[in-house]
Design a protein around this nucleic acid. Structure first.
Lengths: 221, 221
DNA sequence: AAGTCCCTTACGGAATCCCGTAAGGGACTG
DNA sequence: CAGTCCCTTACGGGATTCCGTAAGGGACTT
């Protein structure tokens, strides 16, 4: 079983819940931090000292406070750590249950498991720890299907970028200018229009406003 | 000090944190539930049995699962309880920190305190319990000003309704028709336009799309 | 080389949004 | 009563969006 575990979670009481799971598994070598940056530093330090952590359990969203952070979210932390220390196993433990978010964390950041906080969250976390220890990935049952169903979304970064710009009040023409200035193709007004039309139809949105409303609800932007 | 306390919170680990606070205050007569409906029933039952609760500490958002609930959120629960049992003190304990949400809970639902979950959440919860016991209200320091500053927002239900319709893809003309059909005034296209213009300018949004994006971020819709 | 498929780009017209201007009406005041 | 303030409603025109149609070009097949 895992020998050395780090818990990164800003809410003390949830942290305690995780600790109780670890204790039940007789993992007593663990540490806790409340900030992403602390997690990063502790893991780096442990690697240098040649007593590395072999599991990180981390939240995704952290309340901001006075302390300026380099890593603002669990996603950026996970991505950075997985690049530097591919052997470190990482479990995301979050209230998030939006498909796109989970895809980002599992596929974009390469987390090993995604457990949704909820009534059975701790039990699922325990399962996740076993699975991950055996080299498998794990998803909470209620979201287990989001990766398999590539289903709808051939929505790429370009689409996301367009929607972000729309949400920031850019006109279609301004979006076109924006991509032209960054030498990103396609960039013509027509192409932008077409892209937005495709997005609207795939989300059955009557206009750009509703499109952005839906995209926000889905956590795409 | 409070004699009988109910904790309503779907995440077990957070519930444990609250319990530890109560124990530190030597309040040992408390019960825990994980669903709003259970909270309502327990309080009702206790009133009938003439051993009423005198404090409820409740979360606002509950993960949905198979159990169909009459009260879907903490807000509806708080509002209903405060109407039936004005003597019952209620503390909302939530990750929410959006001004509009807090206004709704404090002013619309008549909660006695609003504590933000966060790094110091439990300490603040303890303060809130004292304040509320002394007949005062309490807000977490980081959001303490949201009620005083009535500041900008004279955004009324009509504005909110317009924004919801916009988010659902209605054109300005359709919104006008909508209000006409419900005999709500103002309803003319011009009036709707003017209202949206005011909303856009008060949120400095370049167009309706950005307006809805901002409104979503603020939790207004 | 011709054919096709797919993608980018272009154009035009109808609908909608954006914004300034202004008329009408109720409430309140001197 | 006239004057003002505020709100609702109306109108017009320029900008933008929406949507169908279509030309151009690259990749790939036959």
């Amino acid at each position: 079983m895992f020998k050395k575990v780090l818990i990164s979670e800003d809410l003390g009481s949830i942290s305690n819940g995780i600790v109780s799971i670890l204790e039940a598994l007789h993992i007593d070598n663990f540490q806790q931090v409340q900030y992403c940056d602390d997690a990063y530093l502790k893991i780096k330090r442990a690697e240098i000292d040649e007593h590395p952590f072999d599991l990180l359990i981390t939240d995704l969203s952290y309340k901001e406070d006075h302390r300026q952070q380099k890593y603002q979210s669990g996603e950026t932390l996970i991505k950075a750590l997985k690049q530097e220390y591919p052997n470190l196993k990482i479990i995301a433990y979050s209230v998030e249950d939006r498909p796109q978010k989970i895809r980002t964390v599992m596929l974009g950041c390469n987390a090993d498991a995604f457990v949704c906080k909820g009534r059975n969250g701790l039990k699922q976390l325990e399962e996740a720890i076993f699975k991950v220890y055996n080299g498998q990935t794990y998803l909470s049952p209620q979201v287990a299907n989001v990766l398999r169903k590539s289903s709808n979304t051939e929505i790429d970064d370009f689409d996301i970028e367009i929607m972000k710009l729309l949400a920031n009040g850019f006109s279609q023409d301004e979006i076109s200018q924006h991509f032209k200035s960054k030498n990103i193709n396609p960039s013509s007004l027509s192409a932008i229009e077409k892209r937005i039309l495709k997005l609207r139809s795939s989300f059955s949105a009557k206009n750009a406003t509703q499109l952005i409303s839906i995209a926000k609800d889905l956590g795409l932007i």
